[in-house]
Design a protein around this nucleic acid. Structure first.
Lengths: 226, 226, 226, 226
DNA sequence: GGCTAACCGAGACGGTACGTCTTGTCTTCTA
DNA sequence: TAGAAGACAAGACGTACCGTCTCGGTTAGCC
């Protein structure tokens, strides 16, 4: 019996991580407020559990114990394992920044290397691929991943192109639709290649490999734009 | 009476799919031989279960029932869910062929479209990503995936390049190491991009998109080779 | 979350049936308390399953279903089939009373007939002998049987002798050790004879047979006391 | 498909151990005869398994391995675990003899002590009580136990009485029905008391206790005969 | 001395129960 | 009213044993 003030799975419907904490049901103002520390502890515990156990052996009971929190608290805030892991992993990718290394190619290499470094961390590896796998059968989860993780990072592509245009490396954009398609293609190619290299081919995405990838990608885009 | 002669998980250590049936322990010649029909039925049942339930709700008990087989039989041949799903999914990718469409670019587009078509099938989507996720914590499984699924398809890259060299589209190869690195890069870029487009970005890898991908890739490789 | 506070098999170490519910670990005061109704339902279901299936085909899964209870609940309270059946059977023997039939011999016959009637019930037959058989290899189980079933009924022997002494049929006891030995011998002879007659020789322990047994026993004790 | 000459569970219907080897189907004279050594080995292996594991953990596969025999061979000769154990245990009780110790009381004490010694052996303890428990729900098994184990030992009671009559300790029997009833009562009392003392009360049936039992029994029978 | 029927070992097979584990809910006490 | 604790119903896990069924190979007895 969900009590009136109960807020089941508050963070479930959140559009993007970070704005989740603002309640969807501002009505409930009375009673003991939820512990904010609990959120932090739970997400950190989730990441640590991913490191120690991997996705498939991670249990919510275990996360609760690690976070020093009751299972009830966990289920009150997330609908299930998938949603929790998405939020826990999403935080990792917010660390990405666009370094200013002087040229478009160098900037891209910088971001891709950061991305590869994150993918080398076990909590990202297990967590990310597992939720992507789950999302193949769950439209809501797929949307949550796109919103919380993927689309949030397109900012990097856009910022990179803007900076390149400032530098004069790229012409100012005219056709916005064509531009959007290009962003998507670049994103799929970069993210996909790194993930495949790292997780499937099981080879390091080191500086040399990233250099090769960037060169092919930029040459190809330049040639194909003509 | 599972005593000395027992052959647990015969297919577990198999180097490549298709050659798995030849026993690793040819010593044991006595006793009732394993049913060959069971293998076929189990793999088909696994794929159907992936379609109906997805990876995380797929249970080996259920597969056994679908295949009309005892759980024992399943566990006698595969070490667990992961290994079974790898074998079941691997068969799907053996359908890939290299069509002769007249030019390198067209050949590549043809293969990539086939690949995208397979990835659009739910048994491939759920199964493949899930085992990749599991493999992030399991070296043996990672190796099994590489051997059974990925490396087996490098044949397509190699055959494609050979045909292009016959046509004179590509010069004969000289530096073999450099060549191997190029094959790996192509493979990661193609497979990774299609997977990301299909499973993460959740957009169709249709003819137009594949055309764009191929153009960028070929232009980039050509330019970067200079 | 079966962590520190877990109370596995609470009823396992109970000294005597009926006092089992008072916890051995009074520390744990928090959390949802165990359902008292479940205990009753489980023991009744166990007896019914003994009637329907006998000991060797009785499964805890089946008992759980009959009792409308999860298997977990069963295993949380009893260590296994043996312990459960001991408790279920023990309740049967608590029905025994010492009737006042006017003379020692008649009182004994009355109790023995009651005992035989219980042994004629299938839940007692299968259950009792099976746990005795298991107890041949399990000291703890043997002790549990003695405490829960056997020793609890020595009250009848003692009460019977007291009443006979009131009536003047027996002299007041002097030598307590010798007295204890006599109680034990009587108990082994009565219980053993009835069990053997009923379960091994497979003949009814009817009024006539009980009369003969009682006569031999009382005459023998009287003669041997001289 | 049981071939024409197949003789499933040859020993199942045998009236008493020792006469079992003579086939029920004398038709089959051709073909390889069954190994006689296997029988011996299997029964010995069964007893040893009872010692090591007890009845409930004894498995036919394990017995087969211990006996150096295939499971098939076992199932060809016995219908199941119960029947096998009955035969294995029955052999133990054939060791009982009626010693000549000079008086009826002494003779009885001698036999009872032998009986107690056998019951002190773990293979007899576990095996006997377990099959008795199983027999509570299996008329055929009950009959088999009576025939193979119990009735075979009534010879001791009868021989004892005959010898006592020779000595003049007992009058020659006149009423045969009454006599048979007395034999049964004696048997139930002696066997039951010793079993209960040993397996339930868990006390040794030593010389002193046996002496007390015998005295009560003989005095009681003498007094009750008057 | 070859035939042949029944035996034997090995072990795979379809079933089924085991005892454990995880899930998501519910219930109690405490803060 | 939130939270910690933990019992609860449900059901999958991977293992073990059951009793049956193929297999290939052996061993007597009769031609």
């Amino acid at each position: 019996m969900p009590l009136p003030g109960d807020l089941p799975h508050d963070r479930t419907e959140s559009a993007g991580y970070g704005r989740a904490m603002q309640r969807r049901h501002p009505a409930s103002r009375t009673g003991r407020p939820r512990s904010a520390a609990a959120d932090t502890a739970i997400l950190a515990a989730t990441r640590q559990a991913l490191v120690d156990l991997g996705w498939s052996k991670l249990t919510l009971s275990d996360v609760a114990v690690r976070a020093g929190v009751a299972k009830t608290t966990l289920y009150r805030r997330w609908a299930g394992k998938n949603e929790l892991v998405v939020d826990a992993v999403a935080e990792l990718f917010d660390e990405l920044t666009l370094p200013d290394r002087g040229s478009l190619a160098a900037d891209i290499e910088g971001v891709v290397l950061q991305f590869a470094a994150i993918l080398a961390r076990p909590e990202a590896r297990s967590g990310l691929m597992a939720v992507v796998a789950e999302a193949t059968r769950d439209e809501a989860l797929r949307e949550r991943i796109r919103a919380s993780i993927v689309d949030r990072q397109k900012r990097l592509v856009i910022a990179g192109r803007a900076r390149a245009q400032e530098r004069g490396e790229l012409p100012p954009e005219s056709d916005t639709e064509r531009s959007a398609r290009a962003v998507d293609l670049i994103f799929d190619m970069v993210a996909g290649s790194v993930v495949h290299r790292t997780l499937v081919s099981n080879q390091p995405a080191d500086a040399e490999w990233v250099h090769g990838l960037t060169r092919v990608l930029l040459s190809g885009l330049a040639a194909s734009a003509r």
